[in-house]
C-alpha cells in the first residue's frame, strides 16, 4: 500500500530485481501482465495474494497456478 496515493503499486511499475533480468522469457504470456491490457487491468480492483502465494513461482511450478485458477472457476 502506497501511503501517498492510497493505492496498491501498479504491477506495470514493478522493477525487476538485480539478477532477475529476462525473467519474462521463462513464463507463458497468459500469466503475465500485458502492456496492451494495462488500461483495462489498472481500472479494476486487484491485489497481490501473498497470503496464499508468498514467494515468486518458479517457471517449473506454473502448472500449479494454472490448475489452481482453472479449478477455482470450475
Amino acid at each position: 500500500m502506497d501511503a501517498q496515493k492510497s493505492l496498491f503499486p501498479s504491477p506495470y511499475d514493478a522493477a525487476t530485481p538485480p539478477g532477475a533480468e529476462g525473467w519474462e522469457d521463462l513464463y507463458p504470456y497468459y500469466v503475465k501482465f500485458q502492456p496492451s491490457r494495462r488500461m483495462e487491468e489498472e481500472g479494476k480492483f486487484w491485489f497481490c495474494d501473498s497470503q496464499h502465494w508468498p514467494t515468486p513461482f518458479r517457471p517449473f511450478d506454473m502448472s500449479m497456478v494454472e490448475f489452481a485458477t482453472k479449478c477455482l472457476g470450475q
Binding site: S63, M64, F67, A68, C71, L72, Q74
Partner: peptide, 13 residues
C-alpha cells in the same frame, strides 16, 4: 505426479 496434483486441486475446490 502432474495428473495427481490436478485431481487434488479439483478436490480442493
Amino acid at each position: 505426479a502432474i495428473e495427481l496434483i490436478y485431481k487434488v486441486w479439483q478436490y480442493h475446490f
